[in-house]
Design a protein around this nucleic acid. Structure first.
Lengths: 191, 191
DNA sequence: TTGCATCCGGAGGCAACCCTCCGCTAGTTT
DNA sequence: AAACTAGCGGAGGGTTGCCTCCGGATGCAA
């Protein structure tokens, strides 16, 4: 628990060139397929999309679960990296900016996450996200610009839903997100 | 289009006693099954649960879609009825109370709703929900207790996500919902 | 270049699901 | 209570998906 660094959850890719190529193609194909067809997309279709034999898919991901996890981890990895880049903004702005990335990254991944609740990897990702986002909330609270009675967990649950909704009207997502963020602001804070 | 009353979407049940019994058993079984297994639950399992032949299921609901719709309509129907009962509360309280029912009723129905986007019945239900809830928001806005720049659509999207999240810690749902509602309040309103 | 460990591909057996079809059952009406 | 239907059930054929297994291909180290 000393250095947070890159959590161990984050994927270990195959070493041999062809294997690695296939691994990546499979994750990409799976991301698409799960996105379009939901988490029960056919594994054989995914193999087809990746231009890879079904056997290859099963070698890399003996379980549908493992493939789901691989896709998910991929997204989370990117999200966590982005937290570090925001450190020098003012507390509230940094918080809001990260939340925006959170919304963007996780937007299409809800169905996926649902399938992964109570999975080892999922818990790992959760930890990683907390490690990235929780300090930003705390900083905003210590600066007196975020309400002190909200936990980071509360924030995630409040916002993760907004990511789910389909917004057609342009700007609506931002507006709605704004309402939610107003609800998280220090009530006495100026506006 | 004169009287709103009971929208035409709301289901027309079979007339004969046994048929009606089976219809109801099927919807109930489907609600459970879709809840547990997701929208791709096996139709044969649903028939089994309902203690009904598979043929009977197909006669009542020639399409998986139609069964999904029947389950969904059932929920919405109850929700809409509940709006009328709140008319004599003060504007903000009425609004909050309805929102709470909304959250409770729709909680487990998200996956279901997802499958139904761009379905005729779904649009009908959407209309019904608007008819029930939109006046409550407007009343609160006219009383100056809800922010005037939020549409009812915004409200639904803001809240429908919260319904999705799994809350383990008791009271968390209420707390988080409270944050969201604070975000919807008239900013200048006392607290 | 050679040799080997690793990786590939897809045929094939198995299981689950979908949906139709039709002989039978049982509400309903008179 | 008799006749008339609407409704029931489940066997069965077709399809699709899951997963294993192993002969052959291929990257890589020496």
């Amino acid at each position: 628990m000393t250095s947070v660094g890159v959590p161990e959850v984050f994927a270990r890719r195959p070493k041999r060139a062809d294997a690695r190529r296939n691994y990546e193609a499979l994750v990409a194909a799976a991301r698409e397929a799960f996105g379009e067809r939901g988490t029960s997309a056919s594994l054989e279709e995914i193999a087809r999309r990746a231009q890879v034999g079904i056997g290859t898919l099963y070698r890399h991901f003996p379980t549908r679960q493992e493939l789901l996890e691989a896709v998910y981890v991929d997204e989370v990895e990117a999200l966590c990296r982005s937290a570090a880049e925001l450190a020098d903004l003012p507390p509230w702005d940094a918080f809001v900016a990260w939340i925006n990335r959170f919304v963007a990254y996780v937007a299409t991944k809800r169905a996926l996450a649902e399938e992964l609740v109570d999975s080892e990897v999922f818990r790992g990702c959760r930890t990683a996200i907390y490690a990235a986002g929780e300090p930003m909330l705390r900083r905003a609270q210590e600066a007196g610009v975020a309400r002190p009675d909200a936990t980071f967990d509360d924030v995630l649950r409040l916002l993760s839903g907004i990511t789910a909704a389909q917004f057609t009207e342009p700007g609506q997502r931002e507006r709605v997100l704004g309402f939610a963020l107003d609800g998280l602001r220090q009530p006495t804070a100026a506006r």
